[in-house]
Design a protein around this nucleic acid. Structure first.
Lengths: 104, 104
DNA sequence: ATTACATTGTCCAAAATTTGGCAAGTCTAT
DNA sequence: ATAGACTTGCCAAATTTTGGACAATGTAAT
């Protein structure tokens, strides 16, 4: 399920029109349509606003939104999964402290 | 291991100087230095050229290079791993055909 | 067929980001 | 102090992203 698809699904469940959500996000309807179809990407702030307007946890939409960007980078690559695993491993690494502490 | 770190490692193993590789990539030394330190990102083409110059499979460098870009997107996100899993699942999905075939 | 309304497609200019490169800087060894 | 390798900071050109106008298309009701 892509970000835009999910937005549309939620919007329709609530019986809202594109122009209503578009207005809440202070953009025009064509723009909102593009976001739903994945032709444009929403801004980070708009993800949170949409979560509120559509009554879902912002984490759900944020994860979909990020996933979409990640997917765009690797989608046509033979080493896609490989790259993903490397990135995941890096995420799991403890953060190296920048400065020494007394007991560090 | 980050892309730039790996480049530096390979370069030093071969006893090459930044300016030598920089020349091969048709960029100046500061630029190459920035790539090694991850301050700038190499272009896709340059990844393949570097693989050749450093005698490693291009897949290895390409995967590191992609991983770096993926990592940049999610690194500070609470839902990072979540987003990664969603993107991975999407990668594993069969591609939906655009047009019907006779036996499709 | 006509109206009313929702959605999608095309195109352009402003804004923002990325890029390449220069000049000057640090650091190490001599 | 000089030389060589590398790093840092800054700027302008180039590219990409963005917002939005406007036209085109789709859809349902009459």
């Amino acid at each position: 399920m892509f970000f835009g698809e999910r937005i549309r699904q939620l919007r329709e469940e609530k019986g809202l029109l594109q122009r209503q959500l578009a207005a809440s996000l202070e953009m025009d309807t064509p723009m909102f349509s593009k976001i739903e179809r994945g032709e444009r990407k929403a801004k980070r702030d708009q993800v949170f606003l949409l979560a509120k307007l559509l009554s879902v946890p912002s984490e759900e939409l944020l994860a979909l939104w990020l996933a979409g960007q990640v997917y765009e980078i690797v989608k046509d690559e033979k080493v896609a999964l490989n790259a993903m695993h490397i990135a995941e491993a890096r995420l799991k690494l403890p953060v190296k402290p920048k400065y020494k502490t007394n007991n560090g």
